[in-house]
């Protein structure tokens, strides 16, 4: 896990990505192999990731689309029928 210095990139992470990185950071921090500087950077990033995950859970809206509405599928359906 390579910590990045710009928390902006977290905003673009999906829940799964953010959660996976958070898990990795916690495990890394718990292994206690890091220098203090590294640990602090990891901690801050972990906090930001956790906040991002929580915000995603709070604010997410189910995205729904229908296959038949795309032109690609219309032709598919034509073949399959």
């Amino acid at each position: 896990m390579k910590p990045q210095n710009h928390p902006d990139d977290i905003q673009s992470l999906s829940y799964e990505q953010a959660f996976a990185e958070l898990e990795a950071i916690v495990a890394g921090l718990e292994a206690n192999q890091k220098s203090l500087d590294e640990a602090l950077v990891l901690f801050e990033r972990g906090q930001a990731l956790a906040a991002h995950c929580a915000a995603l859970l709070d604010r997410a809206e189910l995205r729904i689309r229908q296959l038949g509405e795309t032109s690609a599928l219309t032709s598919e359906n034509g073949e399959d029928d």
């Binding site: 189910l62 689309r65 229908q66």
Partner: peptide, 10 residues
Amino acid sequence: YPLAEVIVAP
């Protein structure tokens, strides 16, 4: 689980 994307195949 509103994080998911749903694709409906009618």
